[in-house]
């Protein structure tokens, strides 16, 4: 069974349809990039996958034993988050919150997992640094480590490269690809950066208030909408 299966899904806000007729699935080990213009419904779909918003029509199933709480999620950064006096270690540890239950304190195994993820992403030396002092690229790595802490299987990344310069963007994409290949995590990433998406993803879902394309990356670059969208991006 697919990890995520979206069947005839429609989302509405206050009676108005914002995203209609989605039909796609994500299999274990895939790297799906969701692209589209601003207001295309990308963030709404992410909320749907995370069960933060229920579809008004259709269903989103999670399969293969995946529980929603076990989805690692990297949200778009908020101002509060950027200016929070928290250490890197504390930020990453907050990713283990779903293992807390009603207990007030984190377990030793949670703390060991945090160190493991920091090592994996090459930021162990930043452990005691204040999160707000870090560069944009370092901050995104920290948030990626936090998402990894929460995830056993699937990572959902919402615009992870926003605000990063081209070098940092490339580094972060490489890291996400490494997590996908070596750590065997399935990736669902929202991005407006179509070039990055095409270079690294295995599948593309193109939204524009509805599903304009879903399929393999190779088919997308040959499709009319793919060529048009990539062309527009390159012109920019």
């Amino acid at each position: 069974m697919s990890l995520i299966n979206c069947e005839n899904v429609t989302f509405t806000y206050e009676g108005s349809i914002v995203l209609a007729d989605l039909n796609f699935c994500v299999e274990r080990g895939e790297y799906l990039c969701i692209v589209g213009e601003n207001g295309a419904g990308k963030s709404t779909l992410i909320k749907g996958i995370l069960r933060l918003k229920n579809p008004s029509k259709g269903s989103i199933f999670t399969g293969d034993g995946l529980k929603t709480k076990q989805i690692g999620y990297l949200p778009q950064q908020t101002i509060a988050q950027r200016d929070f006096p928290a250490s890197v270690y504390e930020v990453v540890l907050s990713g283990k919150l779903n293992s807390l239950g009603i207990l007030p304190f984190y377990k030793r195994t949670d703390k060991e997992d945090v160190i493991r993820q920091l090592k994996l992403l090459g930021i162990e030396d930043l452990k005691s640094r204040s999160y707000r002092e870090l560069s944009g690229g370092q901050q995104q790595r920290v948030l990626l480590a936090r998402a990894l802490c929460a995830s056993k299987e699937l990572l959902v990344l919402d615009e992870p490269v926003t605000g990063l310069d081209p070098i940092m963007t490339g580094e972060l994409y490489d890291l996400i690809k490494k997590i996908n290949k070596e750590e065997k995590r399935t990736i669902v990433m929202v991005s407006h950066d179509i070039k990055g998406a095409v270079m690294y993803a295995s599948h593309i879902l193109h939204l524009g208030k509805t599903q304009l394309f879903f399929g393999k990356k190779e088919d997308y670059v040959q499709s009319e909408i793919g060529m048009r969208f990539i062309g527009v991006e390159e012109d920019d």
């Binding site: 909320k47 933060l52 709480k69 989805i71 509060a80 988050q81 919150l97 929460a150």
Partner: peptide
Amino acid sequence: SINQSLARSRG
């Protein structure tokens, strides 16, 4: 307080 939607996604 860090991120409400992240907190909600953690249950």
